[in-house]
Design a protein around this nucleic acid. Structure first.
Lengths: 143, 143
DNA sequence: CGTCTTTGTAACCATTGCAGTCACAATTTC
DNA sequence: GAAATTGTGACTGCAATGGTTACAAAGACG
């Protein structure tokens, strides 16, 4: 079902709630409900994108790579789903048919616009927003 | 890769260029570059959504279910990808962790907004737009 | 130096979804 | 009745995903 984006967001939000204290992949995995190896694989992509960093050895773990207020959902999406189209276009069309030859270009323009709209919306939320939302919800529940 | 949406758009655009003349699944398949059975399966969803209709037997085939100017890409998307989330959320989160318990609700709100933005953009283009775009491009190429 | 902790990564498996294909009954035209 | 065509079920092959194990590399600490 490709829930990697939402797991990545969960990871980063979790790191933010740790306030700089390194979180091991095992700790994160227990919050996400999966296993540490999977977390480390995803974390690798986040680190490569500069959204997190990690240290090995005793007392090691992962922390955010920059302030949570400067990490948007668009950043996360780009780090995780780099080269996957939101709405892919079939490449099989018959070029000897007018429709087949031109539908791709015509559709592409519209789909690009859809993607821009999506990205604009994703860019409006930061990990800091989500983390404060989560803690606010938690306070309300336990009041 | 799930190119069903783009194939469905191709199908409807093709039907529009046929100007009311029924198109057989074989003809459509040759434009899309796949086989008739696949076209018929997709067509079934388009018909169920009222975007097309079909007749069996000699001289049969499919036509648009309503004017191309009244079929938006959003209609197509809803007909084809009915119950698939654009950005799915993992359901495995550990509810004993504050982040795990509240991340889903917090994320959902934002993702709903992303989906609304996407839908708004999809609704701006109709099959008539695409068909005229395609014929315009065809004219230009062959000039 | 040796042990323990932890990451980084490769390898593998099971499941799922998609595209492709075949087959055939049902329907319609002639 | 014959031919054309849809509608649909079944099956296959392939790729992506999530899950799991294993282990070398790196760091902390006695």
């Amino acid at each position: 079902m490709n829930t990697r984006f939402s797991v990545a967001v969960h990871i980063l939000t979790f790191l933010q709630t740790q306030r700089g204290e390194p979180a091991t992949s095992e700790l994160v995995a227990s919050s996400v409900g999966t296993n540490p190896s999977l977390i480390r694989r995803l974390m690798g992509q986040l680190i490569k994108a500069g959204l997190a960093s990690a240290q090995r050895g005793t007392g090691g773990g992962a922390v955010l790579g920059r302030p949570a207020s400067e990490i948007t959902l668009l950043d996360v999406h780009r780090a995780i789903d780099e080269d996957s189209d939101v709405i892919p276009i079939h490449q099989s069309a018959n070029l000897r048919c007018p429709v087949g030859r031109h539908i791709q270009g015509a559709l592409e323009r519209r789909i690009d616009a859809v993607e821009r709209a999506m990205n604009g919306e994703l860019a409006r939320t930061t990990i800091a927003d989500l983390a404060s939302d989560v803690t606010r919800r938690a306070r309300r529940t336990h009041a």
